[in-house]
Design a protein around this nucleic acid. Structure first.
Lengths: 130, 130
DNA sequence: TTCTCTATTGCAAGGAATTGCAGTAGCGAG
DNA sequence: CTCGCTACTGCAATTCCTTGCAATAGAGAA
């Protein structure tokens, strides 16, 4: 793998972005460092990094790509369709999810890739009430 | 709600498409009936139909939109990242999943919206072996 | 039937993501 | 240090989806 200035930029930005980043955000931040940044290069760099296991991508509620920067515990996401709140899927739920599919189908869930959409507790309550 | 020719077209196409349709497919089929079909109209019609509960949308593995035509049992999707196989999430898994999130967070999962990505049984086996 | 109100349409512009291709420039070999 | 291979880059074109706006045409009222 070649160590090019463009890749350095992407990796520096990723390192500075703990947690999750959308591709658009990422490109924006790369441009802040180097206005010459070309989107396709960023996407291709991300692909390369993903093959190396340095980042993982998932899809947000709207289906757009989102990147998790490692080394992070693998986790999925919850998204409330009402209020837009986002949170991480915690160990207990993650376990239930992964185990259920493994037991039923032998299907190995890729947790990092999962975004579960629904209604968060407070929105569910509000909805039930009103 | 107004009963326009364009909506008639979309609904006819949906009725003829049992199960799942991607938006691109849908537009293509609408064009087959009426070459004048405009994508934005189709999208907006789908939004309207979704508000009426006649269709539900979810996101496929690649994050693109996908529509489920009712009246169908609510279900989510499994997608194998290796071989591309797709299947529906069955009642047992669905239950485990929905219950786990409700118990832990009070989060109400919108099953129709969920696509779980991972490796299907045979690909998981092949991967473990080779 | 005719009129009016406004939901809906068509179009054009815009943004996000992806791909093909020709040229550039890392980096290991000599 | 220089050369050559080819992994990368930059760009332009393409696809998919979304939004704003002016014009159109349903559908109920008169």
């Amino acid at each position: 793998m070649r160590w090019t200035p463009q890749r350095r930029t992407v990796i520096e930005v990723l390192a500075a972005s703990s947690g999750h980043v959308s591709s658009a955000e990422l490109i924006e931040r790369c441009r802040a460092r180097d206005p010459q940044t070309i989107p396709s290069t960023v996407y291709r760099t991300l692909d390369a990094l993903e093959q190396l296991g340095l980042v993982r991508h998932g899809h947000g509620a709207d289906g757009r790509e989102e990147f998790h920067v490692g080394p992070d515990t693998e986790h999925g996401h919850l998204y409330c369709a009402d209020c837009g709140a986002r949170s991480e899927i915690r160990a207990a739920e993650a376990d239930a999810l992964v185990t259920a599919f493994r037991a039923a189908d032998g299907f190995e869930v890729d947790l990092a890739h999962v975004t579960v959409v629904g209604r968060c507790a407070s929105c569910a309550a509000r909805h039930a009430a009103g």
